[in-house]
Design a binder for these strands. Structure first.
Lengths: 129, 129
DNA sequence: TAACTGTTATACTATAACTATAACAGTTAG
DNA sequence: CTAACTGTTATAGTTATAGTATAACAGTTA
């Protein structure tokens, strides 16, 4: 696990950690059933407190990405990550809305906005490099 | 100005206010040169402190959306809102990235993601109702 | 003159993020 | 059996952000 966090960012580091792990899954570097580091070892690797790692793990657990086993450890959900349901799509819409609002204000057209999204999607083409 | 804020949301209300005003601009309800309410009157309308409104106004000013005149008032930038430059697109990418990462994890394809964006873009078709 | 504008200053509360440290109860490898 | 490991819980503290309350200042405008 090579994880780089931005300690200067206003985005909480536990939140950054959540997304780094999601990136691992999206890149197919992390597959269902794979072990994740213990809260202590990951915390010490990154140089943060174990409770901060724990907070990230619990958010991932609540969204169904991982399973936490009390005195054993943490694994990527062996049954795979939960699919996008209506609830997720609603949340996604809510998050996209302000981005699109500002883009329209700034005269960034739908086509260019979509191109931008496609560029990001391409980042994940083919999985791990 | 009919502005509805969600006081239960974890999103700061000054940030919500920023986006409500951006929505007004995107919907063409607010046009270049239009007056905005004074910090006191808007604060009292919404039921919040004038400093909170002030904070929102200053963020909008820093991004070039509005002009603040010391002892006169606040207007939508008469020269129009600044266009999307490279710096904005970079910021937009950074904000889109985690949304797309999670969508890929959840097996939400590019096509469906784009459809969702288009749905939101359509909201603004034709401007004010 | 009176009512208005944004600005500045001080002071306070509440909450979220993060850290530090310790202890507990099971698991597992040697 | 023991020692090292797992996540969990609890307590306590710091820091920064968000928000409120109140007051005063200086220039604008009707």
């Amino acid at each position: 696990m090579f994880i780089k966090l931005d300690f200067e960012s206003s985005e909480p580091i536990y939140q950054q950690l959540v997304f780094r792990i999601m990136e691992g899954i999206a890149m197919k570097e992390l597959k269902p059933g794979d072990d994740l580091p213990s809260v202590r070892s990951l915390a010490s690797d990154i140089g943060i407190n174990l409770h901060t790692v724990n907070k990230a793990y619990h958010q991932l657990k609540q969204e169904g990405f991982i399973q936490i086993h009390r005195q054993k450890g943490v694994v990527i959900n062996p049954d795979g990550v939960p699919k996008a349901d209506e609830q997720y799509k609603e949340r996604l819409k809510k998050n996209l809305h302000p981005l699109i609002t500002e883009s329209i204000c700034r005269d960034l057209g739908e086509e260019e906005f979509i191109k931008l999204c496609q560029t990001i999607y391409e980042t994940y083409q083919g999985g791990r490099t």
